[in-house]
Design a binder for these strands. Structure first.
Lengths: 130, 130
DNA sequence: TATACTGCACTAGTAGGCTAGTACACTATG
DNA sequence: CATAGTGTACTAGCCTACTAGTGCAGTATA
């Protein structure tokens, strides 16, 4: 995972989004433990406090549950919750784009074109990483 | 126009986006003057300085040019610039959504469904306003 | 010249995000 | 029991982004 400190999105939100996506994708399954505060902080080269803030948010969402002295564990409904939340975030991003397009007077057919264009650009990104 | 101070997006960016969209939509044409700092500040109930920051950004983008004592005027290539920039913003929003979807393991068909869902929700928003 | 509009520049205060440090409580394991 | 791992809680401080207030300079017009 990559953290971009220059982004306007706070680091702790980037971390929360990342963990949520991995849980949604099934990398961590219900009952399993996600990386410890200190381990992830070390890996991402950020302060443990920042990771904790991310984990607090995930716990409020009901995605994980902390067990003192043991770690943070994905709850039974965690995968489902993560999927729902992730899909909502995707919808929200799309809606923002569509709203901006209509406000700028871009016609619906051109909006679809923009979507296809975005799709292709993301696909080439993925290929480049692999 | 509505300003949402609770959004994570800074007010001055919301203003800049709004003006850019209206120029792209042809509300203000090349050679025409956009609302004065104080007039817009009064209307949106924000500080004139905040509007100025938005206008500075638009001037850097080559969308408008300031004439001391007169106002801010849309440049000749302003409309074209605004359209290009707006479309790029739309693409960017779509790409963010698609990237998040793939990271969360959402399959391509479901991504399309999410897009259609977002489209419908925006449409009902627009109807509600009208 | 006086007035009222324009943009511009400077200073100051506020809030949020991040880091750092420290200390504590719990659990498993040797 | 000692140790090393886990999460939790708190304080303090820094830095940047953002907003606000105020005053100044240019331009048009009566």
């Amino acid at each position: 995972m990559n953290i971009d400190p220059t982004m306007s999105v706070p680091i702790y939100k980037q971390i929360a989004d990342y963990i949520r996506q991995t849980v949604a994708a099934g990398v961590y399954r219900p009952g399993e433990m996600i990386p410890s505060l200190r381990a992830l902080a070390l890996q991402l080269k950020v302060n443990p406090n920042t990771v904790q803030r991310a984990y607090e948010q995930l716990e409020r969402e009901g995605l994980v549950r902390s067990r003192k002295g043991l770690g943070m564990f994905v709850t039974q409904q965690g995968a489902k919750t993560a999927q729902t939340k992730s899909e909502a975030a995707v919808c929200s991003a799309f809606a923002r784009g569509i709203r901006a397009a209509l406000a700028a007077g871009i016609q619906p057919p051109r909006v679809l074109t923009a979507f296809e264009k975005a799709w292709e650009s993301v696909e080439t990104e993925v290929r480049a990483q692999a």
